[in-house]
Nucleic acid binder design. Structure first.
Lengths: 214, 214, 214, 214
DNA sequence: TATGAATGAGCCTTCATTCAT
DNA sequence: AATGAATGAAGGCTCATTCAT
C-alpha cells in the first residue's frame, strides 16, 4: 500500500540513516525521521537492525568502507615509487578524502567519524582498528624509508607532524572557513596545498635527519 | 531541609554543569543530574540561567576564560624576544593547555570545545571570535616575522602547518593512545615534544623561505 | 497489562476528552487525567491527536456535530409551513439544545462552546463559520418573511432581539437559577417558555412592522 | 533601588492585575507578569493579597464597583418619571456599560465578568448577590409597573426578554462582529439600538398585556 | 515480512508559593 | 514593608521500543 522505493526497506533505512545520522549525530537523530525518509514504519529500524545504535554502527561502517574504496592511500604506487612519491600520494589521497566528492551526506558523515575519533563510542573500537591503524602504519613505513637509522619514536613523531598538517583541514574546516577562507581546502586547490605540505614536511624531515649541528 | 549553602546555588550549578556537560555533552546531559550534583532543585537551572542551553553556554564561556588565563600564548615574552623564542612559547603553551592540569572535568570540557570547533553550535560563534581568532592571529604574526617578504597566503599556510602538529595531540588524543602510546602527550614529555615540533617546523619554514633550488 | 480495548484507544480518548475538557476547559484540563480516564498511556493523546489542543478541537467539533444532528432548527418544517410556525420550531429547537438531554458531559461542553463564543480561541473560527452562521441566517430568512419590505438592518435587529431572548437561558443559566429559579429552563417548561418568547416576539415584530403611529 | 511608581506597591499590583487578568483570565495569567508590570517582586502578590486568586477577586470587585458608579441604571430618573422613561434609562445604561469607555483594560475585564456569569467561580457568589440581583430587581419593578395585575412569573419573563436583547450585545459581541458587523454596538449607534429595543419590547409587553384574543 | 498501535520512561520548563533576610 | 533566592509539584511532550496482528 505504501511501498515506494525499488530497494528493500532495509537498504532504504540504511540510506536514510546515513542522511539523518550524518546531519544530527547519534543522539540527536530520531528513529522517526529516519523511518519517515525511508518511507518505512516507525518499528522498522528496530525490526531490521535491532536498535537505533546498531543502525548507527552500520551506517558508520558502510561509510568507512566506501571511503577506503574511494581513497586508497597508495593509489598508483608501484614498487619502484620513491618514498617522496609515495608520501605525495598519501597526502593527496588524505586531502581528497577530506574534500569529499560533493555529496553532502558523505560530508556530514565525515564529521561524525571525526567525532568518533575525538571521543570514540563503545562501538568504534573495532572500526578504528581495522581502518585507522593500517592507514597510519603505511605512513610510518614511508617516513621510515626517508629517515634510515632513526629510532621508531622519531619516525612516529615525524609521521604525526605530517598527519597533523592534513587532518587540520578536516578538524578545523569550520574554523578555517571563518578565519582564513582563502586557505579552505577545495577540489581546486588540492594540488597546491599538497605541494605546500610536501615542501614544508620535506624541510622538516631534512632538519630532523641532519640534526641541528653545533 | 536540603539547603546546602545559602546563596551559593548558582555557583554550584555552574560547577555541576561543568562536570555533567563535560561528561555527556549538551544533549545527553540532563538538568536533573546537574541539579542533583549541585544539591539544588530541578527548577534551579531555569531559575538561575534561564534554560539548560544557557547554562551550557555559561559553562563553555567559563571554561574558555579559565584556559585563556592559565595558558597565555605569550607567557614571559618580551619585546626583545626573537620570533623563534616566541614561537616556542606559543607551541608549548598550546601543548600545556592540551595536557591540562589533571582536572578531569577540565579535560572533558576541552573535548566539548573541540566538538564545538568541529561543528559549531549556534552559541559558539561569538566565543569563537573572541578566543580562537586572536590566538591564531598571534601565531600568524610570529610566522610573518620569520618569513619576511612572503605573501600572506604562505604565512597562513605555514601557521596552519604548525598549528596542525599541535592540535593533533588534542583531536587525536584517543587515537594516539591506542596506536602509538609512546607518543602520547604528557606533562613529562612536553618539552621533548615541543622541541620536536619546533625543529620540524623550523626545517619546514626554512625550506619555504629558501624555496626549492634547481 | 493495562490494555483495555484494543484499537479503541482513540475513541476512549475522545470520550475522556469530552468529559475532562467539559469540566475544566482547555487550560485547566490535564492530559494525564484524560489518559487516566481513557485507561491509556500519557503519551496517547499526543500519539493519536498530535497535542492537547488538537484533542480539544476534536472534542469541540464532535460536540458541535452531535448538537447539529440532535437539534436541527427546521425539524418538521415543510415548504408549506408559515413563518410563524417556522419561527416556533426554531425557537423551540434552540431551547431544547440549551436544556440538553440530561447528559452532564454535554452540558459542560455546551458551556465551553459558550465560552468560545464570548472569547473565540484561534481554533474556533472555522467551527464558527460552519455552525453559527448558517443557523443564524436561517433565522434571518424567517424574520424577513415576516417583515416584507423592511430593510436588512431592521431584519437583523429583530432576529437579534429574538435570539437574545433564547440565548439568555444559556448564558445566564446560573444567574437565573440563583435569582428567579422559577424561570429556569427545564424540559418540563420548554413549551411554556417557547410560547412566551413567541408571543413577546410577535408583539415586537408587529410593532416594528406597523411602526409607531401618532 | 527599583521603586518606580508613585503609588504604593499594592495599588500598582491591583492595576497590573486588572490588566493581566483582563487579558488572560485567572488561570492563564501569571503572577510573574503581573509583578513585572507592577515593577514589584515575584513574591509581592502573595505578600499583599495572600494569593493569586485573592488578587483576582480584588480586581473583579474593583472593576464591578467602578462600573456601578459609572453606569447607574436609574441615572436622571425622578419619582415623576414614567415606567417607559425609566425603562429607556435602564436599557441605555446597560448598553453604555457594554460599549465601555474605550479603556481596553475595562473591556477585557468585562469579558472576565461575563465568564463568571456563565460559570461562576467560588469567589463570585457574594459579588453576584450584591451587584446583579439589585440591578435585576430594579428592572422587574419597572416591568411590574407596566403590567399591572400580571403575575410575578409573567413579570420575570418579560424582564428576561428585555434583558436578553441587551446582554446579547455583550455575550455575542464577537459573533456579531463576524456575522452582522453593521449591528455591532458602538457609542455612535447606542441611541438607535436603544430605540429599537424599546420599540420591540414595548410591542412585546403590549402583546403580553392584552393577551391573544380569541 | 512488516506494521500500526501503544507504552513507559524521562526531559525541560513553568508556576505559585515560601522563607530567610 | 519588601525582596531575592529557592522550592516542589505538575505539566505537556518526545522518543526508542515492544507487541499483537
Amino acid at each position: 500500500m505504501k511501498k515506494a522505493a525499488p530497494h528493500g526497506t532495509k537498504a532504504r533505512l540504511l540510506q536514510a540513516g546515513r542522511q539523518v545520522f550524518g546531519q544530527h549525530g547519534l543522539k540527536n537523530a530520531t528513529v522517526r525521521e529516519i523511518c519517515d525518509i525511508a518511507q518505512a514504519n516507525v518499528a522498522a529500524v528496530c525490526y531490521h537492525f535491532g536498535s537505533k545504535e546498531e543502525l548507527y554502527v552500520a551506517v558508520l561502517k558502510d561509510y568507512l568502507e566506501g571511503e577506503e574504496r574511494r581513497h586508497p592511500r597508495d593509489k598508483g604506487v608501484t614498487p619502484q615509487s620513491t618514498p617522496v612519491e609515495r608520501l605525495r600520494v598519501y597526502v593527496k589521497s588524505f586531502l581528497l578524502q577530506i574534500v569529499g566528492d560533493g555529496d553532502p551526506v558523505n560530508e556530514c558523515l565525515g564529521r561524525r567519524l571525526t567525532q568518533e575519533i575525538i571521543e570514540p563510542s563503545q562501538h568504534f573500537s573495532r572500526i578504528f582498528e581495522r581502518h585507522c591503524r593500517p592507514t597510519h602504519e603505511m605512513l610510518q613505513d614511508i617516513v621510515r624509508a626517508m629517515l634510515p637509522g632513526k629510532d621508531e619514536s622519531t619516525i612516529s613523531r615525524c609521521a604525526s607532524s605530517i598527519i597533523g598538517q592534513c587532518v587540520l583541514f578536516d578538524f578545523a574546516k569550520e574554523a578555517i572557513t571563518r578565519m582564513t577562507p582563502e586557505l579552505e581546502l577545495k577540489a581546486s586547490n588540492i594540488d597546491s596545498i599538497t605541494d605546500f605540505i610536501m615542501e614544508f614536511s620535506l624541510g622538516g624531515i631534512k632538519q630532523i635527519r641532519e640534526g641541528s649541528p653545533t
